[in-house]
Amino acid sequence: MDREPLPLRQPLPFEFTGSAGEYFRIWIVNVCLTVLTLGLYAPWAKVRTRQYFHGHTWLDGASFEYTADPITLLKGWLVVMALVVGYTLLVPMVPLLDAIIAIPLLLLTPWLALRTLKFNRYHTRYRNVRFGFEAGYGSALMVFVLLPLLSALTLGLLLPYMFYRQKRWLVAHSRFGQAGFEAHFGFAMFYKTYLLAMLLMLAMAGGIAALFALQLLPVELTGLIGLATVPLYYWLYAFLRVRITNIVHNHSSLDRHRLQSALRVWPYFLILISNTLAIVLSLGLALPWARVRMARYRAACTKLLAAGELDNFLQAQQQAQSAIGEEVGELLDLELGL
């Protein structure tokens, strides 16, 4: 039906050029100053970290940019801190305070998430054009509160559907300048992935149980079952993360450009678990190395299938209005990547 000729797509690789040594210096100064200022430096640390990772992510000869002002973040954090402290002080004095504020808090969460998303997208730039996020409160309420409630009521049957709706919401409301992202994935893909994950998990758990039942493994090792579940948990996390990221990226488009993600479960799992070991054994000092490693792998597996030059994106006009979120800054620090 589609009469439009398929544009020839040119794969443009993402590349991460940061190095562990360089990031370690930034990180340790961040941690040290955060400790010495009792946390007040944290917004600066956050902005510098983000800018380091954005600035070292390259696509077609241009890097990403993070432009948030730490002062703005600080204000937002202070507001949250004041609320938390006020709440903690009030709880013993006001009976039933928990119950009274539970509903408003529940209604506030989507708003905070939305603000944070808008803020962070607005301050992410690529080739002089800002990203953006345009969604209403109602849709945020739907994906962050109503669907989770509904999926809890259905004993998790709706869980994959909820994740699907959340991802679709994130993609379909994202903008790059005046252009909007489009999501083409369906919920069947999510159900397939989660079902597969569940079956694999059951098979692995069953396998371990069978080894003990058949006495192939000595009973003394029973105590180690808990330990064995850690890699299992990591593997499951890697599996879901990789599969879902691939689904989302491979079925999203911006204008006529498409994303391509070829993450693989095993390499991702091995990086994840070796990172974890390194971080634990180094008492946290290997964290910069671990982060850089992961960023490099993720970038290396991602491409933009560009339909022509990336010259035609225009800065959105209405984005000055998005900046109203500025005063609020980053209130709810959710990791809501695409």
Binding site: A45, L287, D333
Partner: peptide
Amino acid sequence: AVTGDVSAAQGVL
């Protein structure tokens, strides 16, 4: 707080 955004998986570690 110190390690920053610890991802869900690294929460275990």
